[in-house]
């Protein structure tokens, strides 16, 4: 089955992972900007990172006919540095019209601090002014519930935002309901110990239905598994769910959500000539 991984940090993966993803049926990835494993010291560090996300990663993905899309921001961990964050936010528009850029993300909260909230609001302002879609990181473990509720408060305060163009990611059993009820999209991240796992993600599909729900692997610096979405596909099959429902969650939903972005020029795999996919990048 063809699928799209809507949240995977390929800069932290080796090229072989692109090949594995392609062999498993992955036809596109969306890569939000995130933490580099260390705090960057200047706005130029982010400018270089955004070049990597918009120039080299699409090329690397294209070697295996995987279409690559990306989101830009300064992540919540580094948002503690407010002055640097403001420099990065001012620089982001340089990249917003590049091919494959889907919007602002993954912004959000990490430890639910004042500085994180201030920079989150400033990212929302940028997205509203530039009419960009938004992808949001929610905190982990004991901070997730509180942080997700704070994020929803800030999103709902801003009447300029179209809720159907905002994805709130890393939802779990205690955060999925308020996200969906408020009209946002929700992402479930499949991760070995924290976040969600394939079987619990299937549980949530069974409880809430497939509308406005995405599943992703994160595929980051931690012990994550870039092929977690195929694990979800298998879990859905083993529970007897139809192929049409699985396809909706892992392929049609990401296409529907991303299609609201002016940077999403997707070639369905059944229509693609090899050079079209490789050539875009």
């Amino acid at each position: 089955m063809y699928y799209i991984d809507p949240h995977i940090h390929m800069v932290s993966r080796v090229t072989d992972d692109y090949e594995t993803l392609a062999k498993m049926g992955c036809v596109a990835v969306s890569e939000p900007a995130f933490w580099a494993g260390f705090d960057r010291g200047s706005v130029d560090g982010f400018r270089d990172y955004f070049r990597q996300l918009t120039e080299f990663e699409p090329k690397r993905a294209g070697w295996y006919r995987v279409q690559h899309y990306t989101w830009l921001c300064i992540n919540a961990k580094e948002a503690e540095n407010v002055s640097l964050s403001r420099e990065v936010i001012a620089m982001i528009p340089e990249f917003l019209d590049r091919p494959g850029v889907l919007g602002i993300g993954e912004i959000g909260l990490n430890k639910n601090t004042r500085n994180e909230a201030i920079i989150f609001l400033e990212h929302l302002d940028l997205a509203a002014k530039t009419n960009e879609q938004i992808l949001i990181h929610t905190p982990h473990l004991e901070d997730k519930h509180q942080g997700t509720r704070m994020i929803l408060d800030m999103l709902c305060d801003d009447a300029r935002l179209e809720r159907g163009r905002v994805l709130v990611d890393h939802v779990e059993e205690h955060t999925i309901r308020p996200v969906l009820e408020a009209g946002f999209w929700a992402g479930m991240t499949l991760y070995p110990t924290t976040k969600c796992n394939p079987h619990r993600a299937v549980d949530m599909i069974e409880m809430y239905g497939p509308e406005r729900l995405l599943v992703n692997s994160a595929g980051d610096w931690g012990p994550s598994k870039p092929t977690a979405v195929p694990d979800f596909i298998m879990a859905m099959r083993l529970r007897g769910h139809p192929e049409s429902l699985i396809r909706k969650v892992v392929y049609e939903n990401p296409v529907e959500f991303f299609s609201q972005s002016r940077g999403f020029h997707f070639t369905p795999p059944e229509l693609a000539e090899p050079e079209e996919i490789g050539g875009r990048q």
Binding site: K144, H145, H174
Partner: peptide
């Protein structure tokens, strides 16, 4: 019902509606 959701909440910090005032964060 909802055991997983309730277990998650056991391991979660509480959400306070007045967090904006407490942190001094002004909505835009």
């Amino acid at each position: 019902a909802d055991r997983a959701e309730r277990v998650q909440l056991i391991f979660s910090r509480p959400y306070e509606k007045g967090w904006r005032q407490k942190l001094g964060v002004v909505p835009r």
